[in-house]
């Protein structure tokens, strides 16, 4: 069954495409925006902006460290640089440059990591960003966003340009079902309740949101009613929505296309441990690198499916 089908969702664009189109559409409204690329603009989709605004696009070659620090300098000169690369190369290759050229001096730079998660498929684990959210969350002051569909990515792109300060936006390569056909009220740090239920809450983002909605639809047939929260912002985290869900549904499942370490699951668990200790289960990539293969097969093999999310809900209900 296709992604989102159980939940009645129609297939939409990849979030990287929604980002590229949104950036271009916002180019005239935000004249200080420039792009800085490490020669993968056709993959990250900054090329859509670059073609429309060639004088505001800089391809600095295959040199991510330099790319990030150049963006820091552009920001110091009053520009709003959008720096995009594969999530893994942006965060892992240029981690110290993000620290010293952007986060520590609080530069208004917009980082965008595409090709997140294992759903990139055939290119394999060297290209998969599965640690990026954890790494991005370590920087004090960094906003970290993981939108799930085209419309919310469009909103996230504008929210990131409106925000003063460093941000990280995670996008994906795979086409994703449309959660918000009529748009959404996207606010940084504010979760969106996509579905209500009393028996448990699934907190998800990115590609795991449509999978969570499929799982919720499947569980409903068994009489289990599940709330689903779109936690599109991992930092700052919407603690109020998490506490409310814990109090009202008593059980939490966190689903993300990321390693266990340091992702949304860790962030949610920290809030719950401090405020509202309730049973929690986690659906994620775990503590392993994946492999090459077709995206659907990979999601199956590494346990990011409707079935695993539904099973996690049942397990957490029985604890």
């Amino acid at each position: 069954m296709a992604l989102g089908e159980l939940a009645g969702l129609k297939m939409g664009p990849a979030t990287r495409d929604a980002f590229g189109d949104a950036l271009k559409a916002l180019g005239s409204k935000y004249p200080d925006v420039v792009t800085v690329d490490g020669d993968v603009g056709n993959s990250t989709r900054t090329e859509v902006f670059a073609k429309a605004f060639p004088d505001r696009a800089f391809n600095v070659g295959i040199a991510e460290s330099n790319m990030v620090s150049v963006a820091g300098g552009l920001a110091a000169a009053g520009k709003t640089p959008v720096v995009a690369s594969f999530a893994c190369f942006l965060l892992c290759n240029a981690y110290d440059q993000i620290r010293m050229s952007i986060a520590f001096p609080d530069m208004n730079v917009k980082l965008v990591g595409s090709h997140s998660g294992i759903s990139i498929g055939e290119d394999g684990p060297s290209q998969m960003g599965i640690e990026d959210v954890a790494m991005a969350c370590t920087f004090p002051g960094m906003v970290v966003m993981v939108p799930a569909d085209g419309p919310s990515t469009t909103k996230a792109t504008e929210a990131m340009l409106e925000h003063k300060g460093p941000t990280y936006l995670r996008t994906g390569r795979a086409k994703t079902p449309i959660i918000y056909p009529d748009g959404c009220d996207f606010q940084i740090g504010k979760a969106i309740q996509v579905r209500d239920g009393k028996d448990a809450t699934i907190i998800a983002n990115g590609l795991m949101l449509p999978i969570a909605l499929d799982a919720a639809a499947a569980l409903e047939k068994e009489g289990i009613k599940v709330r689903v929260l779109d936690m599109h912002t991992v930092k700052p985290l919407d603690e109020a929505a998490i506490v409310k869900a814990a109090k009202e549904t008593g059980r939490i499942v966190v689903a993300e296309e990321h390693l266990m370490a340091g992702g949304l699951g860790s962030a949610v668990a920290t809030v719950l441990a401090r405020t509202t200790p309730v049973p929690v289960e986690f659906v994620n990539v775990g503590d392993t690198y994946a492999e090459s293969g077709d995206p659907e097969g990979l999601l199956q093999k590494y346990g990011l499916t409707t079935e695993t999310v539904a099973a996690a809900v049942k397990k957490v209900k029985n604890r």
């Binding site: 620090s69 150049v70 300098g73 009053g78 110290d96 620290r99 001096p105």
Partner: peptide, 24 residues
């Protein structure tokens, strides 16, 4: 003009500043 101390980043930051200043 730049927070430094992790060696190797200053010239890249300078490149970004020079680009931005020239644009304006």
């Amino acid at each position: 003009e730049a927070s430094t101390g992790s060696l190797g980043q200053g010239l890249s930051i300078g490149v970004g500043q020079a680009l931005g200043l020239r644009m304006d």
